[in-house]
Simulated assay, not measured.
Amino acid sequence: MRALVAAGFVLVVAACAAPEPGGTAPSRAPAPQGLKIEEVAGGFEHGWDVGFLPDGSMLVTERPGRIKLVRNGQVTPVDVSLSDVQVRGEGGLMGLVVHPDGQRFTACYNTSRDVRLVTFRLDGTKATKVKDLLTGMPSNPSGRHSGCRPTLAPDGTMFVATGDIAQPRNPQDKTSLGGKVLRIDPETGEGARDNPFASSNNADERRIYTYGHRNVQGVAFRPNSDQVFSSEHGPGVDDEVNLLKAGANYGWDPSKGGTQNRYDEDVPMTDLERFPNAIPAVWSSGSPTEAICQAEFWNGKLAITALKGSKLMLFTLDDAGKVQNVSIPEELNDKYGRLRAARTAPDGSLYITTSNGSNDKLLRLTGAA
């Protein structure tokens, strides 16, 4: 491995990861040995997410609107009706999470009307729709900034990372589900009872955990901790890793306080002048961006895939959640192209998908991180 030491990274981390006066940038990481990569399966097209089943097999979503079952390296299409999936640009079939009963899973996808969460029941290689869990998440006809990744929290609630669909008012509008991290009941789709805006008269506001986001790609729960982290795409600069605080604003506002209707991407990712109480990122890419994607804890570190950067980034955090260093495994650095999904399996290994558009891979990582 090598530490990430680009000048832009050091400058930004000094500001974001150590906000106290006199703080220092994270140090370079040591170089652990023994990382092993196994190509479990191939032939995917934009593999978007991975879910683990009780028998050791896996479900993999593909953005064009297909779900594949992977068992012992063999890939079988799941018989499921996804005729309402709209595949355009960044949109299509996206995130997936398997429910604790091991029989149901919830997938997130664009339709012609919205982005929605739909729960299915799996029986062998056939999946039957159970219900629309949550509808009405905003969708851009081009698919831009669609989000959308569900993840089950240790407390049993479902967190959902959403995009702002490149509409300027969505991130700061608490009646919109775009540009948010949602926290919902996985059985009903309603906001969790102890959510920060649970007393609101608006059902969508009751679902919001955090707001003021641009295009959240993943949410990760730190083991043995109450800390929740998100990974988020920046515009031309400043991809962000955020430590989420219930009810907090993360400061993205391309409407400039509602004063303009165009999507102004020259505003800061975290606008502390307009929103002094907004929460700064614990890490920011500076320039150029990496197009960081899914976040997952693995071997004690926060592992985040990168699309444009074509790498896996491993963040070492202190007890407070501040970034101490970032390292990049050479074994994955620009070796497999764009990396998207990252999910920790029950056996402790890390599964990653590539997202190059043809013959994409499902990778399994073991060994030291």
Rank of each mutant, 00 (worst) to 15 (best):
M1T: 13
S81R: 12
R71Y: 00
E290H: 06
S310M: 14
L363A: 01
K361G: 00
A41S: 13
V97P: 05
A291R: 10
D114F: 03
G251Q: 08
N299A: 05
T151V: 08
E265P: 07
V97M: 07
D347T: 07
R207V: 09
D114Q: 05
A320Y: 06
K335G: 07
D49L: 06
F197L: 00
I208F: 04
G337D: 14
V181Q: 03
E190C: 09
V75S: 09
V75D: 14
L117P: 01
G136Q: 14
P141R: 02
P171R: 08
A306D: 02
R71G: 07
I165P: 07
S57A: 15
D319V: 02
M313E: 03
N215A: 01
D264R: 08
V85F: 04
T354D: 07
E187T: 05
N325H: 13
T175F: 04
V326S: 01
L362D: 14
V98Q: 12
P19H: 00
R71V: 09
G257P: 08
G92L: 13
N277L: 15
S231P: 04
A291L: 09
H99Y: 01
E205C: 10
T162P: 04
P30K: 03
A25T: 01
A306C: 10
D319K: 13
E273H: 11
F197H: 05
P150L: 02
L302H: 02
N202D: 15
H233F: 07
G92H: 11
L312G: 06
A15S: 14
G73S: 00
T344G: 01
G92A: 11
G300C: 04
L133Q: 04
L134D: 01
V78K: 13
Y250G: 06
A303C: 06
N195W: 04
S231E: 05
S285H: 03
A161T: 06
E190M: 13
V13L: 10
L177K: 05
F105M: 11
T125Q: 12
T157V: 08
K335L: 00
F52P: 05
M313R: 10
E39R: 13
G42R: 14
T316H: 07
L177G: 08
L312N: 08
S27N: 11
D271E: 14
T76S: 15
D318Y: 05
L69F: 00
G189E: 00
N333Y: 09
E265W: 09
T151I: 00
A153Q: 00
S285Y: 01
R63Y: 09
P64K: 07
P171E: 13
T162W: 02
D319L: 01
E187R: 11
R88L: 11
R214K: 06
R66G: 08
R121A: 12
I165W: 02
R66H: 11
P268R: 01
K36L: 02
G247K: 12
K311W: 01
P280L: 12
E232T: 01
S200K: 10
A341M: 09
D334C: 12
D155H: 10
S57D: 15
P26G: 05
G236R: 09
G212S: 07
